[in-house]
Design a protein around this nucleic acid. Sequence first.
DNA 1: CTCTAAAATTAGTCGTGCCTAAAATTACCG
DNA 2: CGGTAATTTTAGGCACGACTAATTTTAGAG
Lengths: 233, 233
Amino acid sequence: MKTLSSAVEDYLKAIFEIQGEEGQGRVSTSALAERLGVARASVTGMLKKLSAMDPQLVRYERYHGAKLTPAGEKIALEVIRHHRLIECYLMEALGYSWDEVHLEADRLEHVISEEFEDRIADMLGHPDIDPHGHPIPDRDGTVRELEGIPLTQLRVGQQAYISRVSDHDPALLRYLDQLGLTLHVKIEVIERGPFDGPLHVRLISSDAVHALGRQVTDHIIVSERVSERRKRL
Amino acid sequence: MKTLSSAVEDYLKAIFEIQGEEGQGRVSTSALAERLGVARASVTGMLKKLSAMDPQLVRYERYHGAKLTPAGEKIALEVIRHHRLIECYLMEALGYSWDEVHLEADRLEHVISEEFEDRIADMLGHPDIDPHGHPIPDRDGTVRELEGIPLTQLRVGQQAYISRVSDHDPALLRYLDQLGLTLHVKIEVIERGPFDGPLHVRLISSDAVHALGRQVTDHIIVSERVSERRKRL
DNA sequence: CTCTAAAATTAGTCGTGCCTAAAATTACCG
DNA sequence: CGGTAATTTTAGGCACGACTAATTTTAGAG
């Protein structure tokens, strides 16, 4: 297993994440370009390269997007495991807040050794999920897919637990933190404004009610069951 | 202050370290090439680039080597501070041994944020020296230069404390650890073989005597005074 | 089924940091 | 002081990963 560049790791991670979000189909050049902040043409070039590597990391068909091979997916999952363990570690051991960890982890994920990974995983008690509720793959690349639906889709009167929050926007995370909308909190939808209007959400524990816009509720995943244990024994 | 590449940081660090080791003169192209493991011609190219940057990072004269400018030295010291703090952190917080920390730190030093640096420095109590006895620069770039001489130069009968050990060779560090020749240990030179022969060294605490070759004694720095406090308040 | 807009690819460049081989310069020795 | 060996620089190239501009392909509307 030779060393891959950060760029390659970033592409594989992005393909994996987009595959997960938008069904299981192929990932388009544009979607990748957008997520990675590079020009479409750059993506085309990299996809050709990734599909020509030995072992082949993506299956790529001209004009029809790409899809990870098992080898590519394995690497993506290793990078994601690094990322999420580092996020946990930064919070637990170094006192970072949940809006600060993502950027730091994005840089560290490419340079830590397996040794480092093992040590922080041990120290943390092998957590299942990261600070935003995303599952942490096993060393062997197994991910438990979590159920849940966007808060946006919850009906008035329904209650649920916050089980996952998108980690890409620090400002959103700080906002949620202020409102008390943190992981594992139980909420109820009180009212929904017309024409995609704000969703009024009540925190069960404090009775506080907040009106949330679509930009917010789309990025919160809720589940009727309380999240499973946060750490394995 | 824009972001510099790892390569640039590595060059500046190497120039600083060689300047420190070999008097205060200019650093030769070959010395740099050797330390960095690249071809001489590559060094020439990089030195030209570094001396053309704004702000200028090295003063470079064709055929006569290079020397850090204050701006270059500042950056070198930041990288070295990162490196040494990370080494401390890996030992104290993650249970690494002193032969394992160097490689990991060499990768991490380029990607951690100031935030990360501050947090580990706080957590460690702002240590003065790294696990091999090298001084850790202040945030503002001040380094306390430590006194001491190579163990090789100690005379028979002289006693001294081990104050610093070269960190580049993990095998050497493991070897010393096995013999009990760790930092701050007091030793006495018992005998010196003829023709640059082995140096017989006694550990004051245990009375154990070991014969050490030149390859070893050259890389151990000793001091007659016990090392200063290891952590600042 | 054709026409067009959107998406994707090709073609051509650029900056970075490395390489080798050849030429230039320095430094040292007699 | 001249000649040679060691050091260093120049010249030319390569891989990588990004870019823009121009072209091709696809997909969707009528």
